[in-house]
Design a binder for these strands. Structure first.
Length: 492
RNA sequence: CGGGCGGUAGCGCAGCCCGGUAGCGCACACGUCUGGGGGGCGUGGGGUCGCAAGUUCGAAUCUUGUUCGCCCGACCA
């Protein structure tokens, strides 16, 4: 297999595409815009999913599962939500095929098997879930209802890219119901914090917490909060969203509850989600021209041991020690593989594990055994060093933590370096066309200006940061007064 | 969805313009020498040329349709 990767400088986009495929995370499928997530990529997703799931449960949520199909009449109930997704829905209209009388061995859709009502394949599950919640909620005692679902959804995107935007993707969607507005808002922000903590602490990707402008809001939400990450090409990526839905869905689906004073009111709602898109963020935040760089805490494989030997006896000696090291690491809960595949030679394995981003590599040969040492290589810095076999397990455990911290620090330094204040239109555009990244600038707060800036610069307002300091200034486009800076960037 | 490019062995590609029944490198299998950064030598297996129609004595090659991908645009909670 030719393993030469396109470099980031040559063609960032192609570099990304090659990494996903050559790093064995995912492949294109026979279905337009849909990917096959391969075992290595799925193992990564499982680690992310398990950690998030744990965090959801720690904050009081439980899992449930709702249908893939949404009857059209339910789908259209919340008008704005329906309108927002209408353009990208897959629709089931029939339930049967039959043999084609004109073409032997082929099938056609049976025109007699048309559904009374079309079924929408969920692009998001608010409709089917809120229709269900109606039967679950009568009293304030039924609240809050804190439910999460792990599922696939379908959005018929025009232009797709593996992980970043696929027609079908895996995600989780939390849907909660509350007695008061304050409680729902609090929930929305709490889950935003859970997302930020997960992405920063586990994926080692620093994020900005913020709120979207009305233009960029989720269809049907009162407020959309988000975490925004910066990729190595200076483009932003929305890594997760948490929506305060007000009483919009409660009203659309007639979900009312009696409060302590037996007064009827509509419940308050939130929804929040992250998807396999996070894997795209992970790749573009950390990886380099040699391949993927996996953050140790969620890496499918944290350590790989590569044996180097001559002859059968040599192999036996190395095997014994390697297995001993592997067992020691496993006892510490470290995910480790002994790569004793005899088809591939050491050099080939080194390159392969670098491509797949395994954080730590141990090379073990006769000469190491004699000296009671191993050669360690860390993926993030590509440094190699020799360490004693005594206490190797604890050394590696510490090294994994160092790597996790280092790639986070590196990504944070990059973001800091690529976050720039602009005070004029000329500055604004020259930054975007130059080093790119986040641009912090004044905006007059109108949708018209926001749209015009987007038209002329291709940059969008990523968010109004939550921890924003207020300062008086003038909008970079119109010169109208503004009270705070917002964060612009070109985005995925 | 508009414009451009592409799909030939598991992967990367040549052949197509000028029609005559498919080739190279890597990978794979076996043997052997090897083994500390993508090994050497020898032997061997594998492809109805994305799919479907058409033109032709004959199609990977020409024509039409279709599908999947890549790039640019429009779109994108």
């Amino acid at each position: 297999m030719g393993k030469e990767l396109t470099t980031r400088a040559e063609d960032y986009s192609q570099w990304y595409n090659e990494l996903v495929v050559k790093g064995q995370l995912a492949d294109h499928s026979a279905v337009r815009g849909c990917m096959v997530i391969k075992p290595y990529g799925y193992a990564l997703w499982e680690n992310m999913r398990d950690q998030l799931d744990k965090m959801f449960k720690e904050t009081g949520h439980v899992n449930a599962y709702f249908p893939l199909f949404v009857p059209k009449s339910l789908f259209e109930a919340e008008e704005k939500n329906a309108e927002g997704f209408a353009k990208e829905c897959a629709i089931v209209t029939h339930y049967r095929l039959k043999s084609d009388p004109d073409n032997k061995g082929k099938l056609i859709v049976d025109p007699d098997a048309k559904l009374e009502e079309e079924l929408i394949i969920r692009p998001t599950s608010e409709a089917i879930i809120w229709n269900t919640y109606k039967g679950w909620i009568q009293s304030y005692r039924d609240l809050p209802l804190l439910i999460n679902q792990w599922a696939n959804v379908v959005r018929w995107e025009m232009r797709t890219r593996l992980f970043l935007r696929t027609a079908e993707f895996l995600w989780q969607e939390g849907h909660t119901a509350h007695a008061t507005k304050e409680e729902a808002v609090e929930e929305t922000l709490k889950m935003l914090d859970v997302y930020a903590a997960f992405v920063e602490e586990y994926m080692a990707v620093p994020v900005i917490r913020g709120v979207k402008t009305p233009n960029e809001r989720f269809a049907g939400a009162e407020d959309t909060y988000c975490i925004e990450a910066l990729m190595q090409d200076g483009k932003a990526l929305q890594a997760g969203t948490s929506h305060f839905l007000g009483q919009n869905f409660a009203k659309a689906f007639d979900v009312k509850f009696s409060d302590k004073n037996n007064k009827l009111d509509y419940v308050w709602a939130t929804s929040w989600g992250v998807s396999t898109r996070l894997i795209g963020a992970l790749i573009m935040a950390h990886s380099d021209d040699q391949g993927l760089v996996m953050p140790p805490r969620i890496a499918p494989l944290q350590v790989v041991i590569v044996p180097i030997y001559k002859g059968e006896e040599g192999k036996m000696l190395v095997d014994n020690k390697a297995i001993e090291i592997m067992d020691g690491l496993k006892k510490l809960g470290i995910r480790v593989k002994y790569d004793d595949n005899d088809n591939a030679r050491p050099g080939w394995k080194f390159a392969e594990h670098e491509l797949k981003g395994v954080p730590v590599r141990i090379a073990l040969g006769m000469r190491d055994l004699e000296n009671n040492v191993v050669e360690l290589a860390r993926r993030d810095t590509k440094e190699k060093f020799t360490v004693s076999l005594d206490g190797i397990e604890n050394y590696i455990q510490k090294l994994l933590e160092d790597i996790q911290q280092n790639i986070y620090d590196r990504a944070l330094a990059f973001r800091t370096e690529h976050t720039t204040e602009a005070n004029s239109w000329e500055e604004f555009t020259s930054i975007l066309d130059g080093k790119a990244g986040f641009v912090s600038a004044h905006w007059d707060g109108t949708a018209e200006t926001e749209e015009k800036i987007k038209q002329e610069s291709k940059a969008t307002i990523r968010c109004i940061p939550l921890r924003n300091t207020h300062e008086d200034g003038k909008c970079i486009l119109t010169g109208n007064p503004s009270t705070q800076r917002v964060l612009f960037a070109r985005a995925y």
